[in-house]
Amino acid sequence: MAQNKKILDLRNIYTYFYTESGVVEALDGVSFDVNYGEPVGIVGESGCGKTVTAHSTLRILPKNGKTVAGEIIYKGVNLLDLPDLQMRRIRGKEIAMIFQDPMTSLNPIFKISDQMTEVIALHRKCNKKEALEIAIETLDLVGISEAEKRITDYPHQFSGGMRQRILIARALALQPSLLIADEPTTALDVTIQAQVLEIIKEMQKKLGLAMMLITHNLGVVAETTKRVHIFYGGRVVESGPTEEIFLDPKHPYTYALFESIPSLEKDKTRLETIPGNVPRLINPPKGCRFHPRCKYATEVCSRVRPPEFKFGKGRRVACHHFEELDLHIDMEAIRESRKAIKEEA
């Protein structure tokens, strides 16, 4: 039964890039799943393997990249075994993707109508006229006013937020079951980000989409997703229900990440920092990849890769010491400062 709930199940994925300076171990045994109709967050800093995960799933890695081991089970089929032709039918129709940069994801020399109807006609097997109708309908759905008129415009005639809406519409017009959104709001301003997030959330609910939201913005994850997987150095270090992880992180990295962001609720003059930098994945640290930056690291951390401990309701954490650590976000203090702010207002 539990098996049937999963739309996407990544099992022990290893993706390597072969570069002049060596082999980049971009994904090093990544396992996680996405359930039907569920929004899931993928969080991590740059270079931690978030985007590579998405690209591995869709098999759109660049030439020097290869998924060398693991299984990507989508609706019971291992995508890594599919022939190219069948994989093409999966991309877009089954799994759609929205990319980070709305400025470069649309071809500047074609009208929006051309760029949308082409994919719709191909995947939904209809003629151009029907495709155009579907396109207008979905554009309308994502809040582009006067869609019939504007569909004949070129990409440069739209602002960043509008372009991102068009990309969302193009992805949704194919009625996919899984949407991968790779940093969909990172390039946008806060007020526009709020608009686009609202649309993504609404669409996800309305269409019952499963969604993989890749982002480094913890606020966006907290508001949009039910479950979250924290990435570090090409591995999943912690995963579980969003609310639990935000309130009670168990991995030292997750904890440090939360403490290092300036918050509107907390009043602090100094931020907690994580010493050092994000590791390079050519020759990554041995054992736990976080150990050179971890305050709690012991000898075993530098030798042995931490196993995944399962506990609670679907929580997993990869840390040798998670049971001994008492990483508590001081919620009491936050609550009090919030109360004080309210009273003053």
Binding site: T191, A194, A222, I261, L264, E265
Partner: peptide
């Protein structure tokens, strides 16, 4: 502007003012 910021705390449910247009 203040209400548009996504808060990294899943329990905060906000009545957001979403600005129209660009």
């Amino acid at each position: 502007l203040l209400s548009a910021i996504p808060r990294p705390d899943p329990r905060i449910k906000m009545d957001r003012i979403i600005l129209e247009g660009d």
